[in-house]
Amino acid sequence: MGFIRFSGVDFHYGPAGSSAVSILKGLELELAQGEFYVLLGPSGCGKTTALNLLAGFERPSAGTIVMEGHAIGEPGMDRVVIFQGDDSLYPWLTAQENVEFPLRMTGVGAAERRRRAATWLSRVGLANHGQKFPHQLSGGMKQRIQIARALVCDAPVLLMDEPFGALDAQTRTILQDELVSICNGSGATVLFITHDIAEAIILADRIGVMRAGPGSAVKDEFALDLPRPRNRGSVEFAAAYDRIQRVLGEEVRKVVTREAAA
């Protein structure tokens, strides 16, 4: 049985039963415990929406989402989110204080808080930047704060929404490799969203490719059992890239054709 399971999930904005177009339609998705699942899809297809549903920010219009046998309720520390962009960081707090924030909300004592935040800051390579404010740090460093802030929670599930989407290619590659080494053997179940096939292959145990919206769902799934860390230049990498590209490319073309016609 899946650790997390979406069954027949529909979603549209607005009141239930309204005639608004469905963003998701009949979404089926299953994540095993400890699995790194990457959701890949053309932009606007509903990837963030699916993540928001699992996080508890939105409720399905139909269908169920279950985690360990319980329906998903309010957002909570058992499903920690790393958001797209850096708007979720608190600019009035230093990097260190941002990472301490979740612990502060859960009533962890000051000394313990400081120690755990410092540990994670140094694990994401920000040991010397703890006293800086987010605006004093680069885009890549800000995403590292977000990663540290999520991992300090020791959550069983991590939800990442294109965390490296806004970064330059070099920084992105470095952070992908770091994420692999951090997540390896952590036991966390990860739902990771991206539109970048190479990123998906570097990170995933399994990849789900979504259809172009509206009414999107998972079109095809790919299991990747290549050993980690994975080599971007390997034959296996290229073969996987090619297989996925064929499926995703078709969906992206639909979006592009529709946009050109509109």
């Binding site: 996080a55 920010f57 309010e74 957002p75 909570g76 520390m77 499903r79 920690v80 989110v81 958001f83 962009g85 708007d87 979720s88 608190y90 924030f101 979740p102 502060r104 909300m105 859960t106 802030r149 929670c153």
Partner: peptide
């Protein structure tokens, strides 16, 4: 996203407002 992040970390009501 600032509010959503804090809700993930368990902040509600007054704590969400103050923090």
């Amino acid at each position: 996203n600032k509010l959503r992040a804090a809700r993930v970390f368990g902040a509600r009501g007054w704590r969400l407002f103050l923090h």
